[in-house]
Design a protein around this nucleic acid. Sequence first.
RNA 1: GGAGCGGUAGUUAAGUUGGUUAUAACGCCGGCCUGUCACGCCGGAGGCCGCGGGUUCAAGUCCCGUCCGCUCCGCCA
Length: 598
Amino acid sequence: MSGFLETNPRTHTCGALRASDIDRRVVLTGWVQSYRDHGGLVFIDLRDREGVTQVVFDPGLSAEAHRLAGELCSEHCVGVAGKVVARGANVNDNLATGAIEVWADTLEVFSRAETPPFPVEDKLDTNEALRLKYRYLDLRRPRLQKNLITRSAITTTVREYLSRHRFLEIETPFMVKYTPGGARNFLVPSRLNPGSFYALAESPQIFKQLLMGAGYDRYFQIVRCFRDEDLRLDRQPEFTQIDIEMSFIDEVQLQTTIEGMVAALWRDVLGREVTLPLRRMTHAEALERYGVDKPDLRLDLVLCDVTAACRQSGFRVFEGVVAGGGIVKCLRVPEGERLSRSMLDGLTDFAKPYGVKGVAFARVQDGGAWQAPFAKSFKDEARDEVNRVAGAGPGDVLLFVAEKAKAANTCMGAIRLHVGDKLGLIRKDEFQFLWLTDPPLFEVDDDTGEVAAAHHPFTSPRAADEALLERSPKDVLARAYDLVLNGVEIGGGSIRIHRSELQARVFKALGISDDDARAKFGFLLEAFRYGPPPHGGIALGLDRLAMIMAGAESLRDVIAFPKTQKGSDLMTDAPTGVSKKQLDELYIQVSPALPTRA
RNA sequence: GGAGCGGUAGUUAAGUUGGUUAUAACGCCGGCCUGUCACGCCGGAGGCCGCGGGUUCAAGUCCCGUCCGCUCCGCCA
């Protein structure tokens, strides 16, 4: 049984052989992808992560190998030795190795496979739950293997690029002090300190700033982060960041460094050139024109604000919303005849989850008149002004949402993408990068007036806005930036505060008392009493980056062992309950209100 | 916390206004086949219709609940 690999060490992968290898004696290993028994000849497609090669068993060449081959099944793990032969008239153009085949004289079955619960191939869309339960089989599919190979290529290039630019890769703790604010933390009980908990780091933010203080002026880490928030297509509870921090730079220098890395990634991994510098847009412009803080620029449609024109338009629905402090947002869709009545009516249902009551629409006629249910009540001057602001002309359809600003923007942003997708206006082969700049430093709650950090409390305000910290916090803009790619936020960062006087003012604006600040971030504040450098950084979402670069549809497809939307791992069955003994050791009691679990 | 979609053979799906024995394809098992590559041909086995209640003479189908998966809103400094 043993000994095959000793006498027949693997010579090639299953994606390697070409016409130039004809007559060579080779040894391949892999899994049986498919099996075609002609009674006389037996063909198998042998698969490894590099590709597929056809292997032929001819009883005339080796009766023993042919006999063994007759018992093969899908997903058996085998090794074959034999000669590379030209396919002649039987070339298979669908295979990279299609010019040749291997005439095997020796077959070793390393291990047999039970019939897999689903076929190991790309095209079938098997139920996600089943795929996750048998993740190790799912991961055999070429599509997923390609994704993980791409992901590995990304981290290789990142390490090369950053090392070349004198960044140091430094690890920081996962088990950290709980810090309030921001994402919910996973907690880890401390056995040695009963009743006390670590938090799993939601990011290495404070540690990398401390490293700057310590003089490691260029740091990076490809690091796992943990956030106990609800999952999405592009959000997992544990995910990986390319975490970066630099001293003695401003935002443009940092962005230039990151742009260089992005260009290197696209060149090395995808063989595509990225034009630098990347486009920039302010946060305010993004909200105004795209309704979101992560515009997808593969689509040319833009929104406009027609609140002023609607204030006294005669159309009471809009007037009422405007009088109540809301806004009216408009999307101009060219070639509006392609939008059917049922599609337009359907938009109201589409808008509901956004807390929007309705989506109004008007077809613009020759001369600028509207064909719309509310056209009669809409004053001509107001209509002309809307047409002017929207740049509308005959044939266009205008879509309107009138709501509070946040809901109107979010909803119209979503409608823009929805309609653009329906009409095939999104250029799917493009990579549209964008730096989003100058976001507000604070988020001010409309109802309570409470001030919260929009990014994190160490983000520096723009120098010009410092004077507004006390007077008008909502107008203070931050030295922060997001990197957006095709409508996905793939990174975000900021220039940090390194002057304690400024930090104190920001804390004060946030309503954090000196005592609070000391209790929560005391070690950072103390560290920054000892000559911290000016510094700033960014964190890029490796998973999202990999998802886009690999052309994957879900974050799960670029993570080897992802979790379901409820955060469970269907393969290992995590999370599970634990024994009373384990809990006792940690001085933890599970609430009796909970039904007990395994 | 909320909304929507889905769950039928190993897999992917069909299953009509509730009505005989729940279909098909692929896969699987047995047989045949020396140029296939989605091989082909002949035969066969395979079902807790997610789970629990209810309505009904009768439930895969209708109602209620529940579990799981997916997508979204809220949430993600």
